[in-house]
Amino acid sequence: MSDSISLGVDSNTAARASELQKEQLSARYRKVDRMFAVLLVVQYLAGIVAALIVSPYAWAGKERVLHMHVWVAILAGAGIALLPVILAIFRPGTVLTRHVIAASQMLSSALLIHLSGGRIETHFHVFGSLAFLAFYLDWKVIMTATVVVAADHFARGIFWPESVYGVANAEWWRFLEHAAWVVFEDIFLIWSCILGNRELAGAAARQAEVEYLSEQEQLKSAALEMALAEMQATA
């Protein structure tokens, strides 16, 4: 008898814990989606400001025209940010939204690197972005971002090696060396995502248990009150 009650309690609590974990993750996904929507807009504006500071005009003698980089920052920057921001507003918390955000964030890194004239310091944006993406606690998002970085380096390494490695005759496998540094960070971020999920699951299980115990206490109190009422009525 007691065994069957115990089993029922465990499965109910486990189901409730799973429900709580899903709720918490969903709330987290939505919150991080909103954070990235803001970040993508801020990066877009920062890209335009960077282009206006670093290379505002192209010159021909004493005549000047708006530099190509400014147009790229305005148009390409808007194009990159548009879809993830719209998804974050209208489809927050979905798998598609966070993967599009991850890809767009990496494309923003590529754009900022380009606008800064390939400055090595701007490459830190990639590593910072990966750390921000880990806020999702979804390791698959980090994989998407890594694939985009590796694909960008691979494609540019084949068709336009100077733009990414600074030399025209870079080895075809050079993108693997760059990707390896990203993977180095990924290992720890993915680990932290798994740990974070475990902690979340633990907290959800504890909350479900507390809820169950509190419910049981309420039932006991109600039964006690009923018994007392009956005793008073018969006395």
């Binding site: 390409a76 808007a78 990159i80 548009l82 998804l87 209208f90 489809r91 336009w160």
Partner: peptide, 29 residues
Amino acid sequence: LIRATIVVAALVWTATIGAAFSAIRRFET
């Protein structure tokens, strides 16, 4: 309306990546 907006944004996003890559490459090379 939301679906249409997302589809349009997805098309713009894809086209932007290709167009920006190509325009930057032409300019810099």
